[in-house]
Design a protein around this nucleic acid. Structure first.
Length: 116
DNA sequence: CTTATGACGTGGT
DNA sequence: AACCACGCCATAA
């Protein structure tokens, strides 16, 4: 039997890849970040890092999903520096207490899920 | 059907 | 650190 509809679904229980992507995205805690590639793996998209990037850019306008908690594997914001959302992402991350050194986030400290 | 394109990742130089 | 080539995979043209 499937779990109660009122409980949070597990990634394996969701059949639509795009829904799994949104589910995992929703689970990144405040103050933490996840890379495109890691998010893809967790969502069962294999090496679909670029697919994650595409879908992030297509999230509905009013979405409450934490799109800003996704950065590249080097801990850097991947949005172009001249893109207005770049500044918003930086602002949101800093508001959550994330520290950037030379434009980079220490993934060993803020990366999610934990590696050690 | 073939190419091009991403808010990417990895491995090699 | 910087650069590059390739792999990746859904979408668009």
């Amino acid at each position: 039997m499937p779990q109660s509809p009122l409980s949070v679904p597990t990634v394996e229980a969701v059949d639509q890849p795009q829904q799994r992507f949104m589910l995992v995205l929703s689970q990144i805690p405040p103050g933490r970040v996840c890379s495109y590639g890691r998010l893809a793996e967790l969502a069962g998209l294999g090496r679909g890092a670029r697919l994650v990037a595409r879908w992030l850019g297509q999230l509905p306008a009013g979405s409450r999903l934490p799109w800003h908690r996704v950065v590249n594997a080097q801990g850097r914001i991947s949005l172009p520096a001249d893109h207005p959302s770049h500044a918003e992402q930086l602002q949101r991350l800093q508001d959550e207490g994330i520290v950037l050194r030379n434009g980079r986030i220490d993934l060993r400290r803020h990366g999610w899920p934990d590696t050690h």
